Structures are given as structure tokens and as C-alpha cells.
Amino acid sequence: MEKILSVKNLTKKFKRVVVNNISFDVEKGNVYGLLGPNGSGKSTTFGMLLSTINATSGDWFWFGEKGTSTQTLKKIGAIIEQPNFYPYLSAEKNLEIVAEIKNVPTSRIDEVLEVVGLLERKKDAFKTYSLGMKQRLAIASAMLNSPQVLILDEPTNGLDPEGIIQIREIIAEIAKTGTTIIIASHLLDEIEKICSHVIVLKDGAALYSGSVEAMTNSKGFFELNAENPENLIKNLSELNLFSSIKVKDHLIIAQISEEISAKELNQLLVKKDIYLSHLIKKKESLETQFLELVKK
């Protein structure tokens, strides 16, 4: 698949190392999540890739071209800071100003407002918009130049659950058009729902870079209970199907090492005269995998 962006050993030092020798690739048409807690180097990484912050060392290539040229920037739409529009002007007027700055036709305005669900409010002043609407207008402004890549820094920050869902749906619709999207976020649940790939950062270092599916592809675990938990644990151990068996919150957690369905496990235990009062098979969430990574 075509590489849109390739980052090689990128480092940024201020008084301390903020981004530490990270490398990753972004392939065309995917949605990437740059995931990490506040202060992990996400915004600084975006700043370097957009040439608003000078890198200390390392290289990056947009569309095969080293660095970030003026021509490259024309192919990118980005929201790095809080939306900054004229409060007393309408959404339409604000986008007309953005279109003039970007030197793109105003004919795109209605189209991008439709994408973010603001077409019916285009005549309303920006100051009358909710925080979620302001964020959606910012996405519309970033889409005006029909970018091949859309960069969003914490797009759901501060939004209520409804606003988060709206942004998630908008990103999914934009992704369907083939636009490559890179999102920085500390919200694991959102990354898991939106992104196909993830780069996990901690203290400026990349702990993982790859598909979300590969990161969460453990065989999962069972939550179990029975009238005699000690006997259940003994028999589970004898099956040699689990990498670990422990008790948590009055439930037995059996980490699966050999693939087995809940039905098959239940049948095996019935043969040993063990009847379960609780049986649920679960997969590790991105959150669990993330926490394991940052602990290490």
C-alpha cells in the first residue's frame, strides 16, 4: 500500500527530550491514532511534521518527499489548536475567509458544511455555536482544500458524549472517501472505535506502531465462577489451556493460551462434575493493552 508519511528516528529536545527517536509509517486510506497521555509528545510530533516546530534530529517524508514543503502543505488539512474564528461572523463568512487564505474556491463551503452537519446553521454567528459545533466547523475548514491527509489533534477534547459521537461519525464518513486521517488522542475508547492503526507514545517514545487489530489480538480470557472456586481453579489448571489463572473481584480470570470457546470449556468442566454459575469470554481491550505497554 502507498505510504503517505514515513517518519525516521524523529527527536525533539527542549530542556528535556519531548519526542524520543520515534519511527512509524502511515499508509494511504487508513485512520491512524497517535495515542498517549498528556505530555507524551503528540502535539510536538504534529508540529514537526507540519514544520511549525524544528526537529532536533531525524527525518520524515510526505508523499515520498523529504520534509514539509509548501506544496505538501496544500495536500494536508490540520487542526492543531482550538478553533479560532471571528465570533460575530457566520460560519459561511468565516469559511469564505479561510478559502481566500488557502486560495481555494468558495464553492466547496456548502459541501464541507454538509459533511459536518452544519449546512442549516451556516448563516448563524460563530459565537452562537456550541463547543461541538465549533469543533465541527474547524473540521469543515480543514477540509476546504480537499486534503489527501487530515490531521486532528484531540478532536473530541472537552466534548460531551453526544459531541464525541458526532465527531466520531464525521471522521468515519471522511475516511470512507479515501482521505488518510491521523488523530492524536488520549481517549483509548475513541481510538479503538475510529482507528485502523495506532502509534502508542509514552514520555516521547513510541512503544507500539501497527494495526489496532494486531495490538488487541490476544486470545482473550474467561470470567468464571462455581460453587467450589478452589476446585474450579484446580481443574482449570489441569486443562493446560490457560497462561494464568487468578481471582479478581470474586471472579476467576483465566487468560487463554490455547483457543477454546465458552461452550467447549463448559462441556469439559461438566464432564468433571463442575457446573458454572458464571461464564463469560472476553477479549482484551485496547485500554488493557495500552496500560500493559505503559507499565513496562
Results as ranks from 00 to 15, higher is better:
residue 3 K to L: 15
residue 6 S to G: 06
residue 7 V to H: 00
residue 23 S to Q: 06
residue 32 Y to D: 05
residue 35 L to E: 10
residue 35 L to D: 08
residue 40 S to K: 06
residue 40 S to G: 10
residue 41 G to K: 00
residue 41 G to L: 11
residue 42 K to A: 09
residue 45 T to V: 05
residue 48 M to K: 00
residue 52 T to I: 15
residue 61 F to R: 08
residue 62 W to F: 13
residue 66 K to A: 12
residue 68 T to F: 14
residue 73 L to Y: 05
residue 81 E to I: 02
residue 83 P to C: 07
residue 89 L to E: 05
residue 90 S to W: 06
residue 90 S to H: 05
residue 93 K to C: 00
residue 96 E to T: 01
residue 99 A to E: 02
residue 103 N to E: 13
residue 106 T to H: 05
residue 108 R to H: 15
residue 109 I to M: 11
residue 113 L to C: 09
residue 117 G to V: 14
residue 121 R to Q: 13
residue 122 K to T: 08
residue 123 K to T: 13
residue 125 A to N: 05
residue 128 T to D: 12
residue 128 T to H: 05
residue 129 Y to Q: 06
residue 130 S to V: 05
residue 132 G to C: 04
residue 134 K to C: 02
residue 145 N to Q: 15
residue 145 N to C: 09
residue 147 P to C: 11
residue 150 L to G: 05
residue 150 L to A: 13
residue 153 D to N: 06
residue 153 D to E: 07
residue 157 N to R: 03
residue 158 G to K: 04
residue 160 D to M: 07
residue 164 I to A: 04
residue 173 E to P: 01
residue 173 E to H: 15
residue 177 T to D: 11
residue 178 G to I: 12
residue 179 T to L: 13
residue 179 T to W: 11
residue 181 I to C: 08
residue 184 A to K: 01
residue 185 S to F: 04
residue 189 D to F: 07
residue 191 I to H: 00
residue 197 H to E: 15
residue 203 D to S: 15
residue 205 A to C: 12
residue 209 S to N: 14
residue 215 M to Q: 09
residue 218 S to P: 00
residue 219 K to V: 07
residue 220 G to H: 03
residue 221 F to E: 00
residue 222 F to V: 06
residue 223 E to D: 03
residue 228 N to S: 09
residue 228 N to F: 10
residue 228 N to Y: 06
residue 230 E to R: 13
residue 231 N to T: 08
residue 242 F to M: 10
residue 243 S to E: 14
residue 249 D to W: 02
residue 250 H to A: 13
residue 252 I to S: 00
residue 253 I to C: 02
residue 254 A to Y: 01
residue 257 S to E: 15
residue 258 E to R: 15
residue 261 S to G: 14
residue 263 K to I: 15
residue 266 N to F: 07
residue 269 L to R: 07
residue 273 D to G: 02
residue 276 L to W: 01
residue 281 K to T: 03
residue 281 K to I: 09
residue 281 K to M: 12
residue 283 K to W: 07
residue 285 S to A: 09
residue 290 F to L: 07
residue 291 L to E: 13
residue 292 E to S: 13
residue 293 L to E: 06
residue 294 V to C: 12
